[in-house]
Design a protein around this nucleic acid. Structure first.
Lengths: 168, 168
DNA sequence: TTATATTTTCAAAATATTTTGAAAATTCAG
DNA sequence: CTGAATTTTCAAAATATTTTGAAAATATAA
């Protein structure tokens, strides 16, 4: 397999992979393209390489920046914006986990707490079972939350070289 | 809030939550409905409670069974099939992790191995960087794979009461 | 077996999401 | 400032996914 073929296949597979996780195909492809690019790319580079429209590139780049996976870099002497992706996949993974936790897990736990305030007889079988399910989900959610916090903290401290502080 | 409202809100939120994870809304809603139902339900019950068509219920139930989240139960004396969901959310979570690992992580790692076989000069800067990215992803993928295996094993052994075997 | 209840399938319709592209807004060199 | 380059926006078009519902297949009681 040639390098260009391998890159293409990686971009396509990463895109397909993304769709299974509720991420749109193009956004995942742009991310993949930036991952395997030596140089930061402009919107025009991305348009050309993935044959997609300017608007599409622009919107998805903005989302990727929102997820903290891509950043805008200024190349001195160049007028156009350039974009580059974090190459360390472990950092990519923790960043995604951090964002999903914030956007989804935290609100879900909040909702579950609200659902625990039901009017009426807590001894009623239906009510009792409902509350058990809800509190079970909340408990597991909170455990996951804590595990992820430790992961994120570990990542941050590892990165800043201050991992020992975690145990003080 | 009344119980019926709480149930409804739970079902809707679980559905919305699902779509963010690449799971279709109705499938997540059916799962939620079965989670908070005291009794196993028939297809007709589900049709009625979620006001969706028979075909839709049938297909999504089949998928849920494929994910190992729902099972068919026979109620003696009743002609129709009944369905019920695993209520222990920790088991639900490990089941989902197990399936996603099998369906997505394992194939992704396989693909990455293929992409490492590139023709041409391994000293070429472009080639070298590509191989570094790919092997980085593969390494992180393999680590995740191992962590998830331990989780799944722990869950299974915990469930069967043979957790001590894990350390022998 | 036959008649009826139940489940499954799948093409077409409905709905939701993504993509385009041109106009508007912004940036910046001269 | 001016005007060209660049970026952003967003309504409409294209595409993808989900849902329906009726027909076909299957199961079961009599």
């Amino acid at each position: 397999m040639k390098l260009s073929e391998a890159k293409e296949q990686f971009i396509n597979s990463w895109g397909a992979f993304g769709t299974q996780w509720g991420i749109n195909r193009t956004m995942a492809q742009i991310h993949a393209l930036l991952l395997v690019s030596t140089q930061p790319l402009t919107q025009d580079d991305i348009m050309e390489q993935l044959t997609i429209s300017r608007g599409n590139v622009n919107m998805n780049i903005r989302d990727l920046i929102g997820w903290g996976l891509v950043e805008r870099v200024v190349i001195s002497g160049e007028r156009k914006d350039h974009f580059t992706a974090e190459k360390d996949i472990w950092k990519v993974a923790t960043q995604i986990i951090k964002e999903r936790k914030k956007r989804e897990l935290d609100p879900m736990i909040k909702l579950l707490s609200q659902l625990e305030n039901i009017d009426g007889d807590k001894k009623d079988k239906e009510t009792k079972q409902f509350l058990e399910i809800i509190s079970g989900i909340k408990k597991t959610g909170n455990q996951a939350d804590k595990v992820l916090d430790v992961m994120i903290k570990a990542e941050e401290n590892w990165f800043t070289g201050s991992i020992l502080k975690m145990f003080k």
